[in-house]
Design a protein around this nucleic acid. Sequence first.
DNA 1: CCAACTTCCTTTAAAGGCAT
DNA 2: ATGCCTTTAAAGGAAGTTGG
Length: 283
Amino acid sequence: MSQYQSLDADVLRTFVAIAEQGGFTRAGEVVNRTQSAVSMQMKRLEEDILQRQLFERDGRQVRLTAEGQVLLGYARRILKLQGEVFNTLRMPHMVGVVRIGTPDDYAMRFLPTILSSFAQAYPLVQVEVHCDSSKQLMLRQDLDLTIVTREPGNEIGQLLRQERLVWAAAEGFCPQEQRPMPVALFNTDCFCRAWTCNALEAQGIDYRIAYTSPSLAAIFAIVTAGLAVTAQLQSLIGGNIRILGEHEGLPQLPVANVMLLRNTQSQSPITDCMADYIIEGFK
DNA sequence: CCAACTTCCTTTAAAGGCAT
DNA sequence: ATGCCTTTAAAGGAAGTTGG
Protein backbone atom coordinates (compact mmCIF):
# COMPACT_ATOMS: atom_id res chain seq x y z
CA MET A 1 0.00 0.00 0.00
CA SER A 2 2.56 2.56 1.08
CA GLN A 3 4.78 2.23 -1.98
CA TYR A 4 1.79 2.49 -4.30
CA GLN A 5 1.67 6.12 -3.19
CA SER A 6 5.28 6.97 -4.05
CA LEU A 7 7.12 7.36 -7.34
CA ASP A 8 10.07 5.03 -7.04
CA ALA A 9 13.11 6.39 -8.87
CA ASP A 10 13.81 2.91 -10.27
CA VAL A 11 10.41 2.83 -11.90
CA LEU A 12 10.82 6.36 -13.22
CA ARG A 13 14.21 5.46 -14.68
CA THR A 14 12.60 2.56 -16.50
CA PHE A 15 9.81 4.80 -17.69
CA VAL A 16 12.27 7.36 -19.06
CA ALA A 17 14.26 4.57 -20.70
CA ILE A 18 11.12 3.33 -22.49
CA ALA A 19 10.35 6.84 -23.69
CA GLU A 20 13.91 7.27 -24.95
CA GLN A 21 14.40 3.79 -26.40
CA GLY A 22 10.93 3.41 -27.84
CA GLY A 23 10.35 -0.08 -26.48
CA PHE A 24 10.16 -2.16 -23.34
CA THR A 25 12.85 -4.63 -24.34
CA ARG A 26 15.47 -2.02 -25.26
CA ALA A 27 14.57 -0.11 -22.12
CA GLY A 28 15.14 -3.30 -20.17
CA GLU A 29 18.66 -3.51 -21.58
CA VAL A 30 19.31 0.07 -20.53
CA VAL A 31 18.11 -0.43 -16.97
CA ASN A 32 19.36 -4.03 -16.66
CA ARG A 33 16.00 -5.71 -16.33
CA THR A 34 14.18 -8.24 -18.45
CA GLN A 35 11.47 -6.91 -20.67
CA SER A 36 8.98 -8.78 -18.61
CA ALA A 37 10.10 -7.01 -15.48
CA VAL A 38 9.93 -3.72 -17.32
CA SER A 39 6.44 -4.58 -18.41
CA MET A 40 5.40 -5.37 -14.88
CA GLN A 41 6.91 -2.19 -13.53
CA MET A 42 4.98 -0.13 -16.03
CA LYS A 43 1.82 -2.05 -15.33
CA ARG A 44 2.20 -1.20 -11.67
CA LEU A 45 2.99 2.42 -12.48
CA GLU A 46 -0.06 2.76 -14.70
CA GLU A 47 -2.57 0.69 -12.79
CA ASP A 48 -1.61 1.01 -9.15
CA ILE A 49 0.54 4.08 -8.62
CA LEU A 50 -0.79 6.71 -11.02
CA GLN A 51 -3.96 5.03 -12.26
CA ARG A 52 -3.48 6.67 -15.65
CA GLN A 53 -2.65 5.20 -19.03
CA LEU A 54 0.89 6.30 -19.92
CA PHE A 55 1.45 4.38 -23.17
CA GLU A 56 -0.45 3.95 -26.42
CA ARG A 57 0.20 0.37 -27.43
CA ASP A 58 -0.10 -0.08 -31.17
CA GLY A 59 1.28 -3.34 -32.43
CA ARG A 60 4.97 -3.33 -31.72
CA GLN A 61 4.96 0.40 -31.28
CA VAL A 62 4.77 2.05 -27.87
CA ARG A 63 4.07 5.76 -27.70
CA LEU A 64 3.51 8.01 -24.73
CA THR A 65 0.02 9.30 -24.12
CA ALA A 66 -0.44 12.97 -23.28
CA GLU A 67 -0.32 12.01 -19.62
CA GLY A 68 2.80 9.97 -20.31
CA GLN A 69 4.44 13.08 -21.77
CA VAL A 70 3.57 14.99 -18.62
CA LEU A 71 5.12 12.27 -16.49
CA LEU A 72 8.24 12.22 -18.69
CA GLY A 73 8.96 15.84 -17.89
CA TYR A 74 8.52 15.29 -14.19
CA ALA A 75 10.44 12.01 -14.22
CA ARG A 76 13.46 13.63 -15.83
CA ARG A 77 13.40 16.43 -13.30
CA ILE A 78 13.05 14.03 -10.37
CA LEU A 79 15.94 11.88 -11.61
CA LYS A 80 18.11 14.90 -12.26
CA LEU A 81 17.37 16.28 -8.82
CA GLN A 82 18.17 12.94 -7.30
CA GLY A 83 21.50 12.94 -9.11
CA GLU A 84 22.25 16.37 -7.72
CA VAL A 85 21.49 15.18 -4.21
CA PHE A 86 23.93 12.31 -4.63
CA ASN A 87 26.60 14.56 -6.08
CA THR A 88 26.19 17.20 -3.42
CA LEU A 89 25.92 14.98 -0.38
CA ARG A 90 28.23 12.16 -1.35
CA MET A 91 31.00 14.21 -2.94
CA PRO A 92 30.77 17.61 -1.24
CA HIS A 93 34.49 17.88 -0.78
CA MET A 94 35.42 16.75 -4.23
CA VAL A 95 38.73 18.28 -5.21
CA GLY A 96 40.76 18.37 -8.35
CA VAL A 97 41.00 20.28 -11.59
CA VAL A 98 38.67 20.46 -14.54
CA ARG A 99 39.90 22.06 -17.75
CA ILE A 100 37.32 23.61 -20.03
CA GLY A 101 38.00 24.88 -23.52
CA THR A 102 35.56 27.34 -25.07
CA PRO A 103 35.43 30.14 -27.60
CA ASP A 104 35.29 33.37 -25.66
CA ASP A 105 31.82 34.31 -26.93
CA TYR A 106 30.35 31.31 -25.13
CA ALA A 107 32.52 32.04 -22.13
CA MET A 108 31.04 35.51 -21.84
CA ARG A 109 27.48 34.48 -22.46
CA PHE A 110 27.14 31.16 -20.61
CA LEU A 111 30.02 30.53 -18.23
CA PRO A 112 29.10 32.99 -15.46
CA THR A 113 25.89 31.13 -14.64
CA ILE A 114 27.41 27.69 -15.14
CA LEU A 115 30.48 28.34 -13.02
CA SER A 116 28.62 30.01 -10.17
CA SER A 117 26.25 27.05 -9.86
CA PHE A 118 29.15 24.64 -10.06
CA ALA A 119 31.13 26.57 -7.44
CA GLN A 120 28.24 26.38 -5.01
CA ALA A 121 28.16 22.59 -5.23
CA TYR A 122 31.91 21.99 -5.53
CA PRO A 123 33.75 24.91 -4.00
CA LEU A 124 37.07 23.09 -3.81
CA VAL A 125 37.39 22.18 -7.47
CA GLN A 126 39.84 24.22 -9.49
CA VAL A 127 38.43 25.27 -12.86
CA GLU A 128 40.68 26.23 -15.77
CA VAL A 129 38.98 28.03 -18.65
CA HIS A 130 40.94 28.07 -21.90
CA CYS A 131 39.54 30.42 -24.54
CA ASP A 132 40.38 29.92 -28.20
CA SER A 133 38.69 29.35 -31.52
CA SER A 134 36.78 26.12 -32.07
CA LYS A 135 39.34 24.96 -34.61
CA GLN A 136 42.25 25.48 -32.24
CA LEU A 137 40.40 23.95 -29.29
CA MET A 138 39.64 20.78 -31.21
CA LEU A 139 43.36 20.23 -31.80
CA ARG A 140 44.13 20.22 -28.09
CA GLN A 141 44.44 17.04 -26.05
CA ASP A 142 44.88 18.67 -22.63
CA LEU A 143 41.25 19.75 -22.09
CA ASP A 144 38.64 17.69 -20.23
CA LEU A 145 35.62 19.37 -21.77
CA THR A 146 35.55 21.43 -24.94
CA ILE A 147 32.73 23.60 -26.21
CA VAL A 148 32.90 24.18 -29.96
CA THR A 149 30.82 25.52 -32.82
CA ARG A 150 30.03 23.17 -35.67
CA GLU A 151 28.20 23.52 -38.95
CA PRO A 152 24.88 21.69 -39.20
CA GLY A 153 25.49 18.24 -40.65
CA ASN A 154 29.01 18.22 -39.31
CA GLU A 155 28.32 17.57 -35.64
CA ILE A 156 30.62 15.79 -33.26
CA GLY A 157 30.01 15.30 -29.56
CA GLN A 158 26.84 16.25 -27.77
CA LEU A 159 24.56 19.04 -28.98
CA LEU A 160 24.27 21.79 -26.38
CA ARG A 161 22.34 24.40 -28.29
CA GLN A 162 21.42 25.60 -31.75
CA GLU A 163 21.57 29.28 -32.42
CA ARG A 164 21.45 31.52 -35.48
CA LEU A 165 24.22 33.96 -36.26
CA VAL A 166 22.92 37.48 -36.81
CA TRP A 167 24.32 40.73 -38.12
CA ALA A 168 24.83 43.38 -35.49
CA ALA A 169 25.96 46.99 -35.47
CA ALA A 170 25.83 50.12 -33.34
CA GLU A 171 22.49 51.93 -33.02
CA GLY A 172 23.26 54.62 -35.59
CA PHE A 173 25.24 52.45 -38.01
CA CYS A 174 23.69 52.09 -41.46
CA PRO A 175 25.20 49.10 -43.31
CA GLN A 176 24.07 50.26 -46.78
CA GLU A 177 25.89 53.57 -46.59
CA GLN A 178 29.47 52.36 -46.53
CA ARG A 179 31.06 50.46 -49.40
CA PRO A 180 33.13 48.48 -48.97
CA MET A 181 31.26 47.69 -45.78
CA PRO A 182 33.60 47.49 -42.78
CA VAL A 183 33.31 44.21 -40.90
CA ALA A 184 34.76 43.21 -37.53
CA LEU A 185 35.38 39.49 -37.17
CA PHE A 186 37.24 36.91 -35.20
CA ASN A 187 40.62 35.76 -36.47
CA THR A 188 40.91 33.63 -39.58
CA ASP A 189 40.61 30.23 -37.94
CA CYS A 190 37.11 30.88 -36.58
CA PHE A 191 34.24 29.04 -38.28
CA CYS A 192 32.10 32.09 -37.85
CA ARG A 193 34.43 34.15 -39.98
CA ALA A 194 34.31 31.77 -42.94
CA TRP A 195 30.51 31.63 -42.80
CA THR A 196 30.28 35.39 -42.68
CA CYS A 197 32.61 35.96 -45.64
CA ASN A 198 30.91 33.25 -47.70
CA ALA A 199 27.50 34.79 -47.05
CA LEU A 200 28.65 38.27 -48.03
CA GLU A 201 30.33 37.04 -51.21
CA ALA A 202 27.29 34.98 -52.19
CA GLN A 203 25.18 38.12 -51.87
CA GLY A 204 27.70 40.13 -53.87
CA ILE A 205 28.26 42.67 -51.11
CA ASP A 206 31.45 44.71 -51.33
CA TYR A 207 33.05 44.46 -47.89
CA ARG A 208 36.39 44.66 -46.22
CA ILE A 209 37.56 43.02 -43.02
CA ALA A 210 38.41 46.20 -41.20
CA TYR A 211 39.06 44.72 -37.77
CA THR A 212 39.97 41.30 -36.44
CA SER A 213 40.49 40.07 -32.93
CA PRO A 214 40.33 36.77 -31.06
CA SER A 215 38.46 38.65 -28.34
CA LEU A 216 34.71 39.16 -28.34
CA ALA A 217 35.13 42.11 -25.99
CA ALA A 218 37.38 43.84 -28.52
CA ILE A 219 34.95 43.18 -31.38
CA PHE A 220 32.04 44.53 -29.36
CA ALA A 221 34.07 47.62 -28.48
CA ILE A 222 34.75 48.24 -32.18
CA VAL A 223 31.13 47.66 -33.15
CA THR A 224 29.78 49.78 -30.31
CA ALA A 225 31.98 52.64 -31.55
CA GLY A 226 30.17 52.44 -34.90
CA LEU A 227 33.27 51.39 -36.81
CA ALA A 228 32.01 48.13 -38.30
CA VAL A 229 29.31 45.47 -38.40
CA THR A 230 29.84 42.00 -37.02
CA ALA A 231 28.16 38.59 -37.11
CA GLN A 232 27.60 36.93 -33.75
CA LEU A 233 25.30 34.55 -31.97
CA GLN A 234 21.91 36.14 -31.46
CA SER A 235 21.98 35.68 -27.70
CA LEU A 236 25.24 37.61 -27.36
CA ILE A 237 23.84 40.83 -28.75
CA GLY A 238 22.96 43.45 -26.17
CA GLY A 239 23.90 46.83 -24.79
CA ASN A 240 24.24 49.51 -27.46
CA ILE A 241 24.41 47.00 -30.30
CA ARG A 242 21.34 46.17 -32.36
CA ILE A 243 20.51 43.20 -34.54
CA LEU A 244 20.20 44.21 -38.20
CA GLY A 245 16.99 43.21 -39.94
CA GLU A 246 16.75 41.38 -43.27
CA HIS A 247 15.51 44.58 -44.95
CA GLU A 248 18.94 46.10 -44.40
CA GLY A 249 20.32 44.08 -47.26
CA LEU A 250 22.54 41.62 -45.45
CA PRO A 251 22.40 37.88 -46.16
CA GLN A 252 20.91 35.42 -43.72
CA LEU A 253 23.56 33.57 -41.73
CA PRO A 254 23.55 29.88 -40.83
CA VAL A 255 22.50 28.25 -37.61
CA ALA A 256 25.45 27.27 -35.44
CA ASN A 257 25.46 24.05 -33.46
CA VAL A 258 27.16 24.37 -30.11
CA MET A 259 28.64 21.01 -29.20
CA LEU A 260 30.27 19.58 -26.09
CA LEU A 261 33.25 17.26 -26.54
CA ARG A 262 34.53 15.08 -23.72
CA ASN A 263 38.09 13.92 -23.49
CA THR A 264 37.78 10.15 -23.24
CA GLN A 265 41.29 9.93 -21.83
CA SER A 266 40.57 12.05 -18.78
CA GLN A 267 37.10 11.09 -17.60
CA SER A 268 36.49 11.65 -13.91
CA PRO A 269 33.54 12.34 -11.61
CA ILE A 270 34.50 16.02 -11.58
CA THR A 271 34.41 16.17 -15.35
CA ASP A 272 31.07 14.40 -15.46
CA CYS A 273 29.60 16.84 -12.95
CA MET A 274 30.91 19.84 -14.84
CA ALA A 275 29.52 18.40 -18.09
CA ASP A 276 26.07 18.20 -16.46
CA TYR A 277 26.29 21.85 -15.39
CA ILE A 278 27.39 22.90 -18.87
CA ILE A 279 24.55 20.98 -20.52
CA GLU A 280 22.06 22.59 -18.16
CA GLY A 281 23.59 26.05 -18.57
CA PHE A 282 23.26 25.99 -22.35
CA LYS A 283 19.57 25.02 -22.29
C1' DC B 1 -1.79 -9.46 -54.42
C1' DC B 2 -1.99 -12.86 -50.91
C1' DA B 3 -1.07 -16.61 -47.84
C1' DA B 4 2.46 -18.67 -45.12
C1' DC B 5 6.19 -17.95 -42.41
C1' DT B 6 9.41 -15.34 -39.49
C1' DT B 7 10.58 -11.90 -36.37
C1' DC B 8 9.78 -8.74 -32.84
C1' DC B 9 7.44 -7.31 -28.96
C1' DT B 10 4.24 -7.36 -24.93
C1' DT B 11 1.46 -9.71 -21.60
C1' DT B 12 0.32 -13.36 -18.52
C1' DA B 13 1.18 -17.10 -15.38
C1' DA B 14 3.98 -19.67 -12.46
C1' DA B 15 7.67 -20.04 -9.43
C1' DG B 16 11.75 -18.66 -6.70
C1' DG B 17 14.51 -15.28 -3.83
C1' DC B 18 14.61 -12.03 -0.25
C1' DA B 19 13.26 -8.90 3.46
C1' DT B 20 10.04 -7.98 7.06
C1' DA C 1 3.82 -16.34 6.65
C1' DT C 2 3.47 -12.49 3.72
C1' DG C 3 4.41 -9.22 0.24
C1' DC C 4 7.22 -7.60 -3.32
C1' DC C 5 10.22 -8.15 -7.05
C1' DT C 6 12.32 -10.84 -10.27
C1' DT C 7 12.90 -14.47 -13.91
C1' DT C 8 11.46 -17.96 -17.13
C1' DA C 9 8.27 -19.96 -20.21
C1' DA C 10 4.41 -19.72 -22.95
C1' DA C 11 0.98 -17.31 -25.57
C1' DG C 12 -0.60 -14.11 -28.73
C1' DG C 13 -0.66 -9.89 -31.71
C1' DA C 14 1.35 -7.10 -35.33
C1' DA C 15 4.69 -6.10 -38.85
C1' DG C 16 7.98 -7.67 -42.17
C1' DT C 17 9.56 -11.18 -45.57
C1' DT C 18 9.15 -14.63 -48.96
C1' DG C 19 7.47 -17.15 -52.79
C1' DG C 20 3.83 -18.32 -55.95
